[in-house]
């Protein structure tokens, strides 16, 4: 029983990441009709916001290391620690939360620049050309990051107090062996919060209502005298923020490298396809569904029956869904079918 609960938690936690990325991807597709292969790169840029802030905060002076005598060894001591002592160390410890605040405006700007500077020229072009240009952009962005930060993963730690794991069984007074890392729980909570905010924005605000109207029928909305294009630009920025935050939060789980966006890109497309092109609830539901499936497929009992299933399950499900429900689980009629 404990094992099942743990695997459910793990599935939710993985699913949270998948759902966040797929949500942003669907948002751009649903509003602008653009298949954005650079979406993984936005995730990666979000992660590197944290790395950048960390490098700024840990700018260091070299101090002679007295414990090594046979050559001149230096310790890097961050200026923040030299100047502010423990307060400085605490600021460095909280690098991920601090970066999250910075990542929002940065990613919004990146998204808007990307849309205005490149994507908007491809609205009326075939999907194949959109895919080529955004995929090219993803490669360029990844190489820029590689050139600047190097090819190796860069370790980033969540704040000290949430580095361990939470004894979940004790919360509910259960006599079970159930604990889960704090940061992964935070990731899950944050992804649920972000997803809820996006839905609230689209469903509960007038701005969101107009955007939804535009998604349903762009021409009519324009005939009503609304500049729907500007709103869509903002939505593209919003999608970039969602992807960026997903990436920034993920640094506490896995040290980011320049290629992390590509690793998630393929997965997020599978999620979108399974969920149904253009369906926001579908993307979220499919994200959690696939996360859960992947987690359970990694159980040893399952793997002993079907060796290697943990690595193909997601694609297997995608094949089955496409065969039985070609529009995905919650796909709308007429999307990508013209």
């Amino acid at each position: 029983m404990d094992a099942i609960l743990l695997q459910i938690l793990n599935g939710l936690d993985k699913g949270g990441a998948y759902a966040l990325i797929a949500l942003g991807l669907t948002l751009t597709f649903g509003t602008l009709g653009v298949v954005n292969f650079a979406h993984g790169a936005l995730f990666m840029l979000g992660a590197f916001c944290v790395v950048g802030v960390q490098q700024l905060l840990t700018l260091a002076e070299r101090v002679r290391d007295p414990s090594i005598t046979f050559f001149e060894a230096y310790i890097e001591q961050p200026y923040l620690v030299s100047w502010f002592g423990d307060t400085g160390a605490m600021i460095i410890d909280w690098v991920i939360p601090i970066s999250l605040l910075l990542a929002i405006p940065i990613m919004l700007l990146v998204g808007i620049v990307m849309e205005r500077g490149l994507i908007r020229f491809f609205y009326k072009r075939p999907h194949a050309e959109q895919i080529l240009v955004t995929f090219g952009l993803a490669i360029v962005l990844a190489e820029i990051i590689k050139g600047w930060f190097g090819a190796n993963p860069i370790p980033v730690q969540p704040p000290e107090i949430v580095r361990g794991s939470a004894d979940i069984a004790a919360w509910f007074g259960l006599d079970a062996n159930l604990s889960y890392p704090w940061w992964r729980l935070i990731y899950l909570a944050a992804s649920l919060l972000i997803i809820a905010s996006v839905f609230a924005f689209l469903n509960l605000t007038t701005y969101g209502m107009v955007v939804r109207a535009g998604m349903a029928d762009r021409e009519t909305v324009q005939l009503l005298g609304i500049n729907i294009q500007r709103r869509f630009t903002i939505v593209f920025g919003l999608a970039a923020v969602v992807a960026g935050l997903a990436g920034a939060l993920y640094t506490g789980i896995q040290p980011p490298n320049y290629n992390i966006g590509m690793e998630f890109l393929v997965l997020s497309f599978v999620v979108v396809v399974v969920g149904g092109m253009g369906s926001l609830p579908g993307a979220v539901a499919a994200g959690f569904l696939l996360g859960m499936l992947q987690s359970f497929a990694s159980l040893n009992e399952v793997k002993s029956l079907l060796p290697g299933i943990d690595q193909v399950i997601i694609y297997l499900v995608a094949v089955v869904v496409l065969l039985t429900r070609p529009r995905g689980l919650m796909g709308r009629k007429g999307v990508m079918e013209a």
Binding site: K14, N177, I260
Partner: peptide
């Protein structure tokens, strides 16, 4: 990258 799905079964 993420080894969590391989680590959770260890716990029990």
């Amino acid at each position: 990258g993420d080894f969590s799905q391989y680590l959770t079964p260890v716990l029990n």
